[in-house]
Structure formats: structure tokens, C-alpha cells
Design a protein around this nucleic acid. Structure first.
Lengths: 194, 194
DNA sequence: GGTTTTGTTGATTGACGAGTCAATAAACTT
DNA sequence: AAGTTTATTGACTCGTCAATCAACAAAACC
């Protein structure tokens, strides 16, 4: 009894299943059959909706980035001052959801994919541009033209802190990462006043 | 005509071949046969010297870390002041060799491995401790007890800057990474004088 | 009512791969 | 010279997997 309009439903299920499976194994050694089984369908159907496994991976990462983007926008919505804008980006970046096993594995493997898969590389560039511009919107009122440099440094620090917290033994501490990044920011701000 | 004492020679060849192959594919989808062929021997021999492919991967990463460690020590040898010690670590971390494709792939996949492979996780912990203590040795004379925090931040910034430069489109710019990290350091130092 | 579109899968293809093993051969030991 | 250790590989086992295809079913279209 084939119901029509299944495509978006199936695709979403596959994307979520892909993320779960990558989180389970920690790497991209995930078979289409595993993904399809977890999504409740045959592997042939998975191949029907996504042309290849690679497309599943890229779509999975796009989904992660969509969630992250929504989180950032949500946090930005309540930000009134430039400082609060930057703070909002930091909090969204180090939210508990981003430290779930699935999210961590997705990010680490995303970097691997970005080396060789054009689709993943494009996605990464988009993420980096958005992060930079979100930071810049808050930073420019605070440090003017130096905002560019500070945004680059803060971007890198965010990635580095994330990596460390994610790979640390024991539960990651997003709050510690936020305050570390804030310390960087405040140093940069004081720098402003000569 | 089996010459004796081949073990270290074969192992070294396999380790180097592993690194090259990981750099070539960008990921861990590398077969033992590919590695063995590049190292000029049969896959059976590779299995003979390393029990499993996983051990080859971990040994390959150990080799990368050994090279990096030597580079750091070499740079530290000529450092006379605390500032120079920190600067030495930065320069070694962002040296051109660390941005070769093989090194980049090795690092990215190392992080993947660290999630699930105990051997890799141990290695990563060793690297992080060494980096921290090398930084701390230079930082403590400069900022005293605050050195711990600065070292943690600088460590994360180093990883983050490395990641960005490595995944950037176009040739990585180690010098830019060094000066970005230096800026962080100098901000932190000025912080000291209230 | 027949045709097209959409959903779905079992079966198959055509490969590849990690790890084992038996066998060969040279060197070293006693 | 007989026995042991080290080096080496071809062949094999047992398993996997991405992608395709033919075929079936139901809804929509005309």
C-alpha cells in the first residue's frame, strides 16, 4: 500500500539514521544496509532516494548544520547588545546538543570528507562564512576594523575548543569552552583601549 | 635470500607507506594490500609484522608525533627566553611539514581514531600533555599561575588554527597561523599588567 | 479502464578485503 | 648435520558491500 509523498519522509529518516550510525561507529565505515535498516526500509530504497552513499553523508552533515544554524539564530534572537551577539554564537556553538556522540562523530568525519568530497567542502565553506559573519556582526561595533582578525581568531578558537572538549576523556564541558572563548574576547576588547 | 634483521626495516617501510596511502585517499579506506605494495612486500608480510591494520594506523600516527616532537625539541634548543620558548612551539606546530597532505590526513584521521581506538586515544593524550607542558614552561615565567589557563587556550587555538589552515582552499599559510597565535599570547600578556 | 507515476524490495552482480596458513628458503645455533 | 629461528609469499577462507535490476503494487491521471 504505497502512500504517496513518501520521498521527504524517507529522506529525513535516512538522514537521521545516517547520523545515528556514524555516531555509533565513530567513522564512515557504515553500510547502506545498516542505515536503511535503522531507517526501516530496504537498502535498495535508500539507493533509490539518494544516488549514492556519499550523498547520504553530505545530506546528513547538511542536516547537522541546519540544526546548528537554527540554534544560533535562536540565541541571536534575544541578543540586544553586540557583546550578547557574540556570546549567543558561543553558547550555541558549545551547546550540549553539539557534544552528543552523533554530533561529534559527524563533525570529525565532516572534516575528513571536506578533504576530498566537493559537496562536503562547499558545506564547510558555508559554515565557516556564516560563523565568521555572525561573529563579525557583534565584533565590528566593539573593535571596528580589527573585527576581521578577532573573528578569525575566535573562529579558530571555537573549532579548537570544540575538538578538545569532544575528544576529552570524560564528559565534555561546554560551559568551560564558552568561558575560555569569552576570555579571549575580553582580552581582545581590552586591547582596543590601547 | 632472507637477510636477518629485516623487522625494523620492514616496519619502518610499512609505517611510511601507511602515511602515504592515508594521505593519498584522505581517509582510512586503505587496504593492507595497498600499503604492502607501496612498501614493496606482500600483504601477508605486513600482517606478519603488524598484527592488524589498526596497529599499522596507530604506529603511523606515532611516527608522525615523533617527527613533530623532534621538530619541537629542535626549535626549543635555540630558545633563550620564555617568549622564545612559546614562539618555538608555535613555529614547530605550524611548520610546512605539518601541512603536507599526508600529515594533514594523518591528523584528521587520528582524531577519528581517538574516538574509538584505545591506542590512538592514549597517543592523543600524550601529545596534548606534551604540548601543554611545553607551553607551560614558557608561560609560567611570564604569567605565573595564570599559565595553566593560557596554555589551555593556546593549545586549543593551535589545534583550531591548524584545522582551518589545513582545510582551507588554497595553500595553507603557517606563518599566518603563527602570528594569529602570537596575537593571542600578547593579549594574554598585556592582561597581566592589569 | 488503461497508462503513467511513485513506492518498494528480493535477488543478483561484480567486486574487494582482512586475516590465516602451509610451504619454501636462507641463516644461525649447537 | 640436524634443528631452530627469521623472512617471505601464494593461495585460500569467509565475509562484506555498493549499486543495479526486474518485478510487483498502489495511486493518480486521462
Amino acid at each position: 500500500m504505497p502512500k504517496l509523498g513518501m520521498e521527504p519522509i524517507r529522506k529525513e529518516a535516512l538522514v537521521k539514521a545516517t547520523i545515528v550510525e556514524i555516531g555509533r561507529t565513530g567513522n564512515l565505515d557504515v553500510t547502506v544496509s545498516q542505515i536503511a535498516r535503522r531507517a526501516g526500509m530496504s537498502s535498495a530504497l535508500a539507493h533509490h532516494y539518494f544516488g549514492s552513499k556519499e550523498e547520504m553523508f553530505v545530506s546528513a552533515m547538511r542536516h547537522i548544520l541546519t540544526l546548528y544554524g537554527a540554534e544560533v539564530r535562536g540565541a541571536l534572537a534575544t541578543a540586544a547588545t553586540p557583546e550578547q551577539r557574540v556570546q549567543a554564537v558561543l553558547q550555541a556553538s558549545f551547546s550540549p546538543g553539539n557534544f552528543r556522540r552523533e554530533a561529534v562523530s559527524a563533525w570529525l568525519n565532516f572534516w575528513i570528507m571536506a578533504q576530498t568530497m566537493p559537496g562536503a567542502r562547499r558545506l564547510l565553506a558555508i559554515y565557516q562564512r556564516r560563523l565568521r559573519s555572525n561573529l563579525l556582526a557583534g565584533l565590528r561595533p566593539l573593535v571596528g576594523a580589527r573585527g576581521e582578525t578577532v573573528a578569525d581568531g575566535l573562529s579558530a578558537l571555537i573549532d579548537g575548543l570544540y575538538l578538545r572538549e569532544a575528544l576529552k576523556h570524560g564528559p565534555p564541558d561546554g560551559r568551560a569552552a564558552v568561558s575560555m572563548a569569552r576570555a579571549y574576547l575580553e582580552s581582545a576588547l581590552k586591547e582596543e583601549e590601547r
